[in-house]
């Protein structure tokens, strides 16, 4: 993957302001490549990192990262062979059982993920799933509430990367477990909305093993000149398809061996 930046600093700031406006005021915008067809993935990350710089300057705290587009089917659909990553801040976190407002979201969707909490720093390139497991403090179940700021959830890789991988909210919960006590490849997951099963799968749907997604995330970070710090909370990507939610919906994700994560959505 090339991290080449082709846009000028001025264009990057301009696109960042456009994404930031859409995220902050919750409205949909056309994908960025409509105006900048030559935009690269490197340009997308430059916009994302500028967005992070602005958030952190305003006092947001980064708590970790997320991997996205981690299923083979999704990558094939997007014509890419790497997942995308996005940063997570304390402002995106919601507690388990929370009432989550959709007023400040565009078209939220929920998906079930295995999350990792790191005890050691990890540096790429060449990070492997084995290294990820060795550096993991514990794993826990999580629900990510993604929200593309692009009209109709339609985007390409440079645009979605600039939009911070559609990151919006996340809820960690359930039961913390040592990774070595589980087979992280075969964990079954059931997503229920208002008491009805709406999506199902097993954790191998994420690149064959969720730790593989974390390894790829660390290797992407290396290309951006960063490492994954100890203490990071990292989401490994959706096991299930993403399901649209609206005010009044109640969601529970049930994980084999990891318990459940629940939340409800309000105006």
């Amino acid at each position: 993957m090339s991290m080449e930046i082709t846009l000028s600093r001025e264009d990057i700031v301009r696109l960042c302001e456009r994404v930031e406006g859409a995220q902050t005021r919750a409205y949909a915008i056309p994908k960025l490549t409509d105006e900048y067809p030559g935009m690269t993935i490197g340009d997308g990350y430059a916009v994302q990192l500028e967005l992070r710089r602005r958030f952190l300057a305003r006092g947001h705290k980064q708590v970790g990262w997320k991997a996205g587009l981690t299923s083979k089917a999704k990558m094939k659909q997007m014509g890419v062979d790497v997942p995308s990553i996005g940063f997570l801040t304390d402002r995106m976190a919601r507690p388990e059982n929370a009432a989550i407002s959709t007023a400040d979201l565009v078209h939220p969707r929920v998906e079930c993920e295995v999350a990792f909490v790191m005890k050691d720093e990890l540096k790429g390139p060449g990070c492997t799933a084995g290294a990820v497991l060795a550096a993991t403090d514990y794993v826990l179940p999580a629900v990510e509430i993604i929200d593309s700021r692009f009209s109709g959830f339609k985007f390409d890789l440079p645009s979605v990367v600039a939009d911070n991988g559609s990151s919006a909210r996340f809820v960690g919960g359930g039961r913390a477990r040592y990774a070595q006590d589980l087979d992280l490849r075969t964990l079954g997951v059931v997503l229920e909305k208002n008491g009805e099963i709406v999506a199902m799968g097993a954790s191998a749907a994420v690149l064959g093993h969720p730790a593989e997604a974390i390894a790829m995330l660390v290797n992407i970070l290396a290309e951006l000149g960063e490492s994954l710090p100890a203490g990071s909370f990292v989401m490994s990507g959706g096991i299930t398809e993403a399901i649209a939610v609206k005010p009044g919906d109640s969601v529970i994700a049930r994980f084999q061996e990891l318990g459940s994560v629940s939340m409800r959505f309000v105006e």
């Binding site: 079954g188 997951v189 059931v190 099963i197 199902m200 799968g201 749907a205 096991i239 049930r254």
Partner: peptide, 13 residues
Amino acid sequence: ELHSTGVGAAVQG
């Protein structure tokens, strides 16, 4: 190669 995944609940809950 990974073909697909599922879970017990797919069968009648």
